[in-house]
Design a protein around this nucleic acid. Structure first.
Lengths: 197, 197
DNA sequence: CCCCGACTAGAGCGATCACTCTAGTTCTAG
DNA sequence: CTAGAACTAGAGTGATCGCTCTAGTCGGGG
C-alpha cells in the first residue's frame, strides 16, 4: 500500500524544482509530466486539486528543506551572524546541476497574491518559519526581546534580496556581500549596548 | 503623426502594472488588452515583437521610474541611510489603489532566467542602475572605494528582500525594519574607521 | 478631390492549456 | 484462488494562448 509513494514524491520533487526555476504560472502540466516521468492519471489521483494543490505541497516541502538547512547552519555556529554566513555559503553552492541559485519560494510567492491566494498563504508561512528560526537563535545570543523580531526580519530580507540579485545578475558576489553585511548588522547589535544600559 | 502615442503609452503603463502585480507569464494578452482598452491590432503595430517586446519596454520604464524616485530620495537626504529610509517610506505608501506594494521588476525578473533571457538582461540592468545610484551616494558620503560596491549591493538586497517579504506577508513592518537596518548597516560604516586607520 | 502611410478593429488560426474520464494493471486482504 | 482497492496510462474535451491577416478609419500633403 506504499506503491504510490514513488510517483507522488517524484511529482513533488519535480514541481519544487520547476517552481524554484521558473515560478508557478510558467510551469505547465505538460512540462511537469515530461520531466517527472509520471502520467497524467497519476497526477490527478494523488492531487485531485490539480496543479495548484501540487504546488502547495511542493512549496511546503521546499520550505521545510530550507528550514532544516537554516536550522543546521545556525545550530552549528558560534553566533547568529556566522550561522547566516554558513547558510549563504551553502546557498551559493550549485547543487545537482541547477541552472541558477535562489530561493525556491520567492518566484512563486511574488506572483501568488493575485494568481493564487492559497499559494500566497503557504509562501508566507515559509518565510515566517525561517524568520522564527533566526529569531530563536538571536535570543540564544542574548539579544533583547524588543529588537529580536526586527533584526530577524531584516536579516531574512537581506538573505532573500541577495538570492534574488544573485539569480538575476548571475553574480554570486551578492551572496558574499550579504554575508559580510549580516555580520556587520548583527555585530552592531543592541545586545551589548542594552546590557550595558 | 503623434496620434499613436496614447495607445502605445497606455500599453506600456498597463503592462508595467501587470508585471509588477503578477509577473510575466501570468499576464495574458487578453487581460492586457481588456485592461488597457487597446485593440489587438494596435498592440502588434506598436510592438511587432509581441508580448515579450512590450514587456521589455515596460520593465525599462519601471526601472527608470524607480531610479528617478531613488535618486530624488538620495539627493534630498543628508546621508545615504536617510535617503534609503525615505525611499522605503515612499515604497510603503500605496499609490493608485495598487493591490500590493513591491518592486515592479522582481516578479518578472525571478521567472526570466529560463523563460526569457532578454527580460533577464533588462531586469539585471535595472538592478545595476539602482545599485550604481546607491554607490554614487556612498562615495559622496566619503566611503572608501574598496567597500562601496559591497555596501551598495547589500543595501539593495536589503531593500529588495524587504519589499518581497512585505508583499507576500502583507506586513508593512518589514519595510520599517529594513529602514532601521539600513541605518545600522551604513552607520557602522568603514568610512570612519578607515579614515582613522 | 485623391492618395498614402499611420493606426485600429477584430475574425480566424494552430498550438497548448488544465482537466475529465474510461479502461487496464498491480497490489493486498481474505 | 477471488474481490476489490490503489494506482497508472492515455485519449478526448472545451477553453484559452499568442499571433497573423485582412478590412477599415483617420489625417495631412499633393
Amino acid at each position: 500500500m506504499v506503491r504510490d509513494r514513488d510517483s507522488r514524491a517524484e511529482l513533488i520533487r519535480t514541481m519544487a524544482r520547476l517552481l524554484r526555476d521558473q515560478g508557478y504560472t510558467a510551469t505547465g502540466r505538460a512540462q511537469l509530466l515530461a520531466e517527472s516521468g509520471v502520467s497524467n492519471g497519476s497526477l490527478y489521483h494523488h492531487f485531485p486539486g490539480g496543479m495548484e494543490e501540487l504546488a502547495e505541497a511542493a512549496l511546503e516541502a521546499s520550505g521545510l528543506a530550507v528550514a532544516n538547512a537554516l536550522r543546521e547552519a545556525l545550530d552549528g555556529a558560534p553566533d547568529t551572524a556566522t550561522g547566516i554566513g554558513r547558510f549563504l555559503d551553502v546557498a551559493a553552492r550549485p547543487v545537482g546541476g541547477q541552472p541558477c541559485p535562489g530561493c525556491p519560494i520567492a518566484p512563486a510567492a511574488l506572483e501568488s497574491p493575485i494568481i493564487s491566494p492559497r499559494l500566497r498563504t503557504v509562501a508566507a508561512q515559509c518565510f515566517d518559519q525561517w524568520k522564527d528560526l533566526i529569531a530563536t537563535r538571536l535570543r540564544a545570543d542574548g539579544w533583547p526581546e524588543h529588537s529580536v523580531a526586527e533584526a530577524a526580519s531584516a536579516t531574512l530580507a537581506l538573505i532573500e534580496g541577495a538570492l534574488l540579485l544573485a539569480r538575476v545578475s548571475g553574480e554570486m558576489s551578492h551572496l558574499a556581500h550579504a554575508k559580510r553585511a549580516a555580520v556587520s548588522l548583527l555585530a552592531a547589535s543592541p545586545a551589548n549596548s542594552d546590557k550595558a544600559g
